[in-house]
């Protein structure tokens, strides 16, 4: 900013010895990076949702006539489980900020369990649906959208389990250092929000 006010004899640059800090002192940008990444991820989902909405808009009746009925009960319960798990995982964050590693492990384990139940419920639903992947356009979009989301739940589960694994190591996470916890939590919230939109689109709308 002071650019134009330096006197001409001075060099274009000064080198400030005091700032020779090493990389350790660099602020941690990983959470910001993750947020940017999730922004990009949400564009994939947005693209798929827009495709779904276009198919829907173009067809005279949706789901197309002859598509077997779907249950709402099981997916409804599943949705509740996934949404609640977002609150559960947040408790872990609260815990670790108080340096409570035990709490972290407890809540993460609980979230992982809910995730597993969700995935199991999804598989159960797939198994009992009367239409298959290629039955018609609706069926295809249904499977691909929920499947792609399921894949994300699966990855989120992996993240949670990885954090759990690392949390066994004493002092790995603390109120100061818990990027892994935050990342897993953020990712999980993301997966959760996507599911809410997906649920509204596929089951309610």
């Amino acid at each position: 900013m002071q650019g134009s006010t330096v006197d001409s004899a001075k060099a274009a640059l000064n080198y400030h010895g005091a700032e020779t800090a090493g990389h350790e002192a660099h602020p941690d940008h990983r959470i910001f990076g993750l947020i940017v990444f999730l922004g990009a991820e949400s564009m994939i989902f947005l693209g798929l949702f827009m495709a779904y909405l276009t198919f829907r808009a173009v067809y005279p009746s949706w789901p197309p006539e002859g598509t077997p009925e779907r249950e709402l009960l099981l997916p409804g319960i599943n949705t509740l489980i996934l949404i609640s798990s977002s609150f559960v995982i947040h408790q872990a964050d609260v815990a670790i900020k108080k340096n409570n590693v035990g709490g972290l492990r407890k809540w993460f384990a609980f979230t992982a369990l809910m995730g597993v139940v969700f995935l199991a419920g999804q598989l159960y639903e797939y198994h009992n649906l009367e239409f298959g992947l290629t039955t018609n356009l609706y069926a295809s979009t249904f499977y691909v959208l929920t499947g792609f989301h399921g894949l994300h739940v699966f990855l989120g589960l992996g993240l949670i389990l990885a954090v759990l694994w690392r949390a066994q190591q004493k002092g790995h996470y603390s109120s100061e250092h818990h990027f892994g916890v935050e990342a897993a939590e953020l990712y999980w919230h993301f997966v959760d929000v996507v599911w809410i939109v997906l649920f509204l689109l596929l089951y309610i709308l």
Partner: peptide, 15 residues
């Protein structure tokens, strides 16, 4: 060492 700017990137002919 970390540089400190004392000029804009394109200040040709300035001062």
């Amino acid at each position: 060492v970390l540089p400190i700017l004392t000029t804009g990137p394109y200040d040709y002919g300035l001062e």
